[in-house]
């Protein structure tokens, strides 16, 4: 079993009975949330070695992802090789790191779990699998649950499930809760990341309520998007989800992780999200067991920025190994 790595190994979120009063009491003021996230990048800044360190941390939180129709075992093998060795040795040395950093996980489709597990053997890097009819999540529930069990059987340590957006849009919290609960059971020891599909939920109020229900149903992580919606991870959506995590933590004492996914491509984006995590949830949430970034091209930009930090010269992607 590949446990999530990082400084904070914590008990999983066991969930709690659905508390509809708490879900319905959620209030979100969209324009105030947007003001907060619009000004946050201007309120905090990391420079020089602090910036380099924060980018290393961002790298360690990446779920290096390939979720394409043309994925093959060969393609997955190449991605896993990058996951094992995300940063060139001279940059690792230049940063003064004792050991090379590694990414948080590799994230693939269920049929690619087996090749990924094989490729990552001995690395300690967990394999995450999307499941439950990703990305729409509208296949029959037994099939969705079966898909989870297959992925776990093949060695996935983390399952990124998609919720049924219809249950949110229709405010059918009980059905949503029951489904996620069943998925959590199907996961067994594998950690469950609940993808809310925030771009489909449209309103921040929906996002906040869906976040609460997913955590009550036992999600280990809540995740913004599949990467396939029109709008994926945004700072306002993330802020609302982080506040929900804080609310849940204050009510239950259980830590739930957060994973923005889709659209985070620049190193600067990763810093903004780390700042948001630190400001809203604090130091504990700056580790890969409570924070992941779902991304495929972000790593390349982080490599370039770190190379610039080490050499003082602006870098070219062609000098970094392809993921």
């Amino acid at each position: 079993m590949n446990a999530p790595h990082g400084a904070n190994a914590r008990p999983r979120n066991p969930g709690m009975p659905l508390a509809l009063d708490l879900v319905r009491a959620v209030q979100v003021n969209a324009s105030a949330v947007e003001r907060r996230t619009a000004t946050l990048p201007g309120r905090r800044s990391v420079k020089k070695e602090w910036q380099a360190a924060w980018l290393v941390r961002a790298l360690e939180c990446i779920d290096l992802t390939t979720l394409a129709g043309d994925d093959t075992p060969g393609r997955v093998h190449r991605l896993c090789a990058k996951a094992r060795n995300p940063l060139r040795a001279d940059i690792v040395a230049g940063l003064g790191l004792a050991t090379p950093p590694r990414v948080g996980a590799v994230c693939v489709y269920p049929t690619m779990v087996a090749p990924a597990v094989a490729a990552l053997e001995g690395s300690g890097i967990p394999v995450a699998s999307v499941a439950t009819g990703f990305p729409a999540g509208l296949t029959p529930l037994p099939l969705r649950l079966q898909e989870i069990r297959e992925a776990v059987k093949d060695g996935a340590a983390e399952i990124d499930i998609v919720i049924t957006r219809a249950h949110v849009l229709n405010q059918d919290w009980q059905t949503l809760y029951d489904e996620i609960r069943a998925m959590r059971e199907a996961c067994g020891d594998a950690h469950l990341k609940a993808i809310l599909g925030t771009g489909d939920l449209r309103t921040l109020r929906n996002v906040a309520r869906a976040s609460q229900v997913a955590m009550m149903a036992g999600a280990d992580f809540i995740k913004t998007s599949t990467g396939k919606e029109d709008v994926n991870a945004t700072l306002p959506v993330s802020l609302v989800m982080l506040r929900a995590i804080r609310e849940y933590f204050e009510a239950t004492g259980h830590h739930v992780g957060f994973k923005p996914a889709g659209g985070l491509r620049a190193a600067k984006d990763a810093l903004n999200w780390l700042i948001l995590m630190k400001e809203e949830l604090g130091r504990d949430w700056l580790e890969p067991d409570l924070f992941r970034i779902g991304a495929s091209s972000l790593l390349g930009d982080i490599e370039r920025q770190l190379e610039h930090y080490v050499t003082g010269r602006y870098a070219s992607l062609s000098r970094h190994a392809l993921a």
């Binding site: 800044s45 990391v46 420079k47 070695e49 602090w50 360190a53 940063l95 130091r283 700056l286």
Partner: peptide, 17 residues
């Protein structure tokens, strides 16, 4: 241990004058 290793432990912001 290098400075970056230390910062990775504390995750402080550091100065940004």
């Amino acid at each position: 241990m290098g400075k970056i290793t230390d910062i990775l432990r504390t995750m402080e912001y550091g100065p940004a004058p």
